[in-house]
Design a protein around this nucleic acid. Structure first.
Length: 575
RNA sequence: CGGGGCGUAGCUCAGCCUGGUAGAGUGCACGGUUCGGGGCCGUGAGGUCGGAGGUUCAAAUCCUCUCGCCCCGACCA
């Protein structure tokens, strides 16, 4: 491709609405253009990188046994009503109606559509398993789209769905897809981790996320350096926290005034105890009534764990009125002692806490010297703890580290969540009908490319890993008025094309400085600079964007040398 | 959904408080110079000041409404 005929316009200015590097660079390099909030056009340079990723995805999913199709972006409400999600899915679902007043939505995901397809074709266990995928534009009406392609409203996603006669078959597909994801992200040169994720209250028996470690990531992941355990924060467990020092417990707990002390920190300081000795009582509202969650004062409740444990649909922090109604005191003074008519769920972190402090269920007062055994009767302790960095690993006990991650892929064992209500069933060898067991597998195309930039850039611009680079090599003639320079550059460019190298020729009549800066910005991995000085010795300059080291190469051997670099840059299989 | 901020040239922004001829840098066009890291000199084109209404002799500037965009928050008692 000749730059002068390509559609590629870089900018020096950083767009004011771009906060993260990947967004800034994608705009500055002319990869994307915002069309509306959270909605982007993919310009030619960006589309080339996205296409490279899509090619890798197609290749690896083929290996995993998934078959490509394309489903409609616009979906009829009937299917969503069948699965129940028309009512469940909130405002993120973009709904619309047609001229006849029929309801539709712009698909944020395609479980309903694919299930509808499969139930019409598959009737026997002999036809299973089935594994289908598509790469398609989706829409989720996010409250706050941000970070460019990282969290857009419209986005490109690969989504795959598998259908099985049973758990074993699902397990096979799940592993095959997980392995494919690892190959894909490895091919992209990404530093990623696979972590356990929450699989929700309904259906799913397992779920993993693929996270790219980056400070700009919006998710939190916990990892163990020791044994390789990894989980996102919603799912993460811990071996058990060290209990605060035991205290002998007085005969009775007493209520003390704590005027205006509504936070654990304030109460602990006011009473002169460690926050670990406070038991925190958090009230939630659910569709099955209020719930009180107990957690050690220095820790937080993991509401996802709590929600799963209770098996409820809705779980939200109780509003002020409900808190007063349930605890008889304003927010800040709830406690487990004498808290009637509310389900009490205690985290394991409170188990060993003796002589503790807790809210007295009356305004401006707390209990001190309370005892679990004497004052609160709890049958058991649950895991509803939000695990943090430093907590012991659940499998080996070493301290976990916490980091931000960008979720680039998510694989999920769905079970029969969709197949059952939608009647997607098959006959087994006994002639009995069963709903199919399903898996689904998502991979964010735009987000993965953004993550790759997030992880591969310097102060001058993008430093593309070769597999995702929009071009593999850039040929830069420095002086467009020098016929020899232009001619040599052109013949090198042609030679590269003949060898199958994805090459870009910067044939613009620009000053060298402009060309160098643009070259650094767009980050093409291999650069061939043709200048009159080295040309005098029949040499050109070859360098890699990654390290910038220049070496002189005879003109006749340039194409060969570029090929060598491409081979050298290609990811090697991990042993 | 709550709070805050911003909409002025293609882009980044001044001007608004204190009403009176629409500005800079960059980009773009043309000419010259330069030709290995966004060089220099000159000339020029380019703006319904987001939109509507109001106040005023006069509104980018003050008031009201509206649209768009951005940021923060949306929970730990």
């Amino acid at each position: 491709m000749r730059w002068s005929r390509f559609y590629l316009f870089t900018t020096r200015e950083v767009p004011k609405d771009a906060e993260v590097v990947s967004h800034q660079l994608m705009v500055r390099t002319g990869m994307i253009r915002k069309t509306a909030a959270g909605i982007y056009s993919y310009l030619p340079l960006g589309w080339r990188s996205l296409s490279k990723l899509m090619a890798i995805v197609r290749r690896e999913l083929g290996v995993a046994g998934s078959v490509e199709l394309t489903m409609p972006a616009i979906q009829p409400s009937e299917l969503w009503k069948e699965s129940g999600r028309w009512a469940e899915y909130g405002k993120e679902l973009l709904r619309m109606d047609d001229r006849h007043g029929r309801d539709f939505c712009f698909g944020p995901t395609h479980e309903e559509v694919v299930t509808d397809i499969v139930r019409k074709d598959i009737t026997s266990y002999r036809q299973l398993p089935v594994n289908l995928y598509q790469i398609q534009v989706k829409f989720r009406d996010e409250i706050r789209p941000r970070f460019g392609l990282m969290r857009g409203r419209e986005f490109l996603m690969k989504d795959a769905y598998s259908f099985h006669a049973g758990e074993d078959s699902l397990e096979d597909a799940y592993e095959a897809m997980g392995a494919a994801y690892e190959r894909i992200f490895e091919a992209c040169g990404l530093d990623f981790i696979r972590v356990e994720a929450d699989s929700g209250a309904i259906g799913g028996s397992a779920s993993h996320e693929f996270m790219v470690v980056a400070d700009t990531g919006e998710s939190l992941v916990l990892r163990c350096e020791g044994c390789g355990y990894g989980a996102n924060q919603e799912k993460a467990e811990t071996k058990g926290l060290e209990a605060p020092e035991r205290r002998s417990e007085a005969a009775d707990a007493t209520v003390v005034p704590t005027p205006g002390k509504t936070t654990v920190e304030d109460v602990a300081q006011f009473l002169g105890v460690e926050p670990q000795r406070v038991v925190k009582t958090i009230l939630y509202r659910t569709e099955t009534g209020p719930v009180a969650a107990l957690v050690r004062g220095d820790r937080e409740v993991n509401s996802v764990k709590l929600k799963n444990l209770l098996g409820v649909q809705d779980l939200e922090l109780a509003e002020q009125d409900l808190v007063e109604q349930v605890s008889g005191a304003p927010v800040g003074y709830a406690g487990p002692i004498g808290l009637d008519g509310v389900r009490l769920i205690a985290d394991r972190s409170v188990e060993g806490v003796t002589a503790f402090v807790c809210g007295a269920n009356q305004p401006d007062a707390h209990w001190v010297g309370a005892s679990l055994a004497r004052d609160v009767h709890l049958d058991r302790f649950e895991d509803i703890l939000l695990v943090g960095g430093g907590d012991p690993c659940p499998s080996c006990g070493k301290p976990l580290t916490i980091s931000h991650g960008i979720e680039v892929g998510h694989i999920f064992k769905l079970g029969t969540k969709y197949s059952e209500p939608m009647g997607c069933s098959f006959l087994d060898d006994q002639g009995e009908s069963h709903p199919m067991t399903m898996g689904c597998y998502g991979l964010g195309i735009g987000r993965t490319v953004a993550a790759a930039i997030e992880q591969n850039h310097d102060e001058k611009g993008v430093v593309w890993p070769l597999p995702l680079a929009p071009f593999e090599a850039l040929v830069v003639p420095l002086n467009m008025n020098d016929a020899n320079v232009v001619g040599t550059a052109d013949s090198i460019y042609q030679a590269l094309l003949e060898k199958g190298v994805d090459a870009l020729l910067d044939d613009r009549k620009e000053r060298p400085g402009v060309k160098f800066n643009d070259a650094d910005l767009i980050g093409v991995p291999i650069r061939v600079v043709v200048g009159s000085k080295s040309l005098a010795n029949d040499q050109v300059e070859l360098s890699l964007r990654r390290d910038g080291e220049k070496k002189l190469v005879p003109i006749a051997k340039v194409a060969e040398a570029v090929l060598d670099e491409i081979v050298g840059e290609s990811p090697r299989p991990k042993s």
